[in-house]
Design a protein around this nucleic acid. Structure first.
Lengths: 144, 144
DNA sequence: CCTATAATCTATTAAAACAATAGACTAATA
DNA sequence: TATTAGTCTATTGTTTTAATAGATTATAGG
């Protein structure tokens, strides 16, 4: 399961993607419209800023805005940033690899094979799922 | 990530599948060979017994043994039993569905679509991954 | 330059989930 | 009837997750 932090991040980013190139958006604005505790959201946006996904402007007329194009931000990156490993076992994680304590023979582990498959399918979908894609689907359905 | 509980369960089941139809196996035996805290393992095996995956025998010569054929026990079932939902969002879970609090329009949610895809791919693999399959892969590689 | 605004930083706390342990009880076998 | 081994109830410690509080810094506009 995604953490609330990660869900909040995704919702905030989709919200900012909808307002791409329309100037900075207040934290307060995002928090209210997406129903996210403001202080919690602050910390999240700061992390996204440090990861060069968002930029910010202080003072009057300030706020947060998307730094990259919506088609260049995908869920794989967001999820790794917020929750860490995407894989279901540490021993199959590409970015957060750790050997399984109980495992003696990783190369010949039948369990591991299963979760390598799950990981690959999952990463394929998540890396193809950009903010632009998500917006497009929502708009696409609305039009009908 | 899988919980330790779930990993322990899978390892214990694979261990018992290797000894299918060879009589009961002590908790102690499984715990030692798979490096699982004995008391924790007790609770896990009990749950698997209540789910009709394992049977047990008390007293001298007792222990646990696989109740079903190894090809009839898959990881989807084990994971649901141990960790609950497999999906990454409650609103796409088949067995543990809950609406997302912040979501106003579930049908038109672009985020949701992504995780329906992830769920379907994941369930396909996990439901096809039986204890028999896992054993076969391990043995297959050993033979080479 | 001053003031209001809004992001930034540091610290703390509350709640939930996860992992492990202890000890008494029950059933089965020799 | 003693020993073995699973069963049950309860509790405890640890870590992670979620949320909050308050002081600080940068910027725009008058």
């Amino acid at each position: 399961m995604l953490s609330k932090k990660c869900k909040y991040a995704i919702h905030a980013l989709v919200y900012l993607a909808e307002r791409y190139q329309q100037g900075p958006v207040h934290i307060q604005d995002i928090a209210e419209h997406q129903h996210i505790p403001k202080k919690f959201l602050e910390a999240i946006l700061l992390e996204l800023r440090n990861a060069k996904i968002l930029h910010s402007k202080k003072g009057k007329g300030g706020g947060y805005y998307l730094y990259r194009k919506p088609e260049d931000v995908n869920l794989m990156e967001i999820m790794r940033l917020m929750d860490g490993a995407i894989a279901m076992l540490p021993c199959v994680s590409l970015n957060y690899y750790e050997p399984c304590e109980e495992c003696r023979d990783e190369k010949n582990c039948g369990i591991r094979d299963v979760f390598i498959g799950v990981r690959d399918d999952t990463l394929k979908i998540l890396s193809e799922s950009t903010l632009a894609q998500i917006l497009q689907r929502q708009k696409g359905i609305r039009r009908v």
